[in-house]
Design a protein around this nucleic acid. Structure first.
Length: 112
DNA sequence: TGTTTGACAAGCA
DNA sequence: CTGCTTGCCAAAC
């Protein structure tokens, strides 16, 4: 990938690489990404890495949400995040929540 | 080099 | 059940 030329920390690259694997129409949680990276407790650091996302275009960071189904945050604003998700056919409840049972990506996909 | 922060999560009151 | 507090980790200050 073209992330390697940049001066990102190894951890940050891992997060971005992982995020890029999330297919359109699916979502992942901070916790899941953290888990794949080795430690569930990394969730906070994961969000931090995405927040400072150097490649808003290349990396679909809008497909990463909280483990309880809520949208979470977004550098460009939660509104924008929701819009993007809807465009990818990811439905959102009235309470601004996502049905993880339907849209959560397989852990195996991320490990590819 | 030490402290603070944060797009989270789990536990406790 | 809702809301607040504490814990974790990597990065930025």
């Amino acid at each position: 990938m073209d992330l390697e030329n940049n001066d990102l920390t190894p951890f940050q690259r891992s997060v971005l690489e992982l995020t890029k694997k999330i297919p359109s129409g699916k979502v992942a949680t901070y916790k899941l990404l953290a888990k794949v990276l080795g430690n569930e407790k990394l969730s906070r650091a994961v969000g931090n890495a995405l927040n400072r996302n150097p490649f808003p275009i290349v990396v679909p960071c809008h497909r990463v949400i909280k483990s309880d189904g809520f949208i979470g945050g977004f550098a460009k604003g939660t509104e924008a995040k929701i819009k993007l998700l809807i465009k990818e056919n990811v439905l959102i409840n009235k309470s601004n929540k996502i049905d993880l049972r339907k849209y959560l990506v397989d852990e195996a996909i991320l490990k590819e």
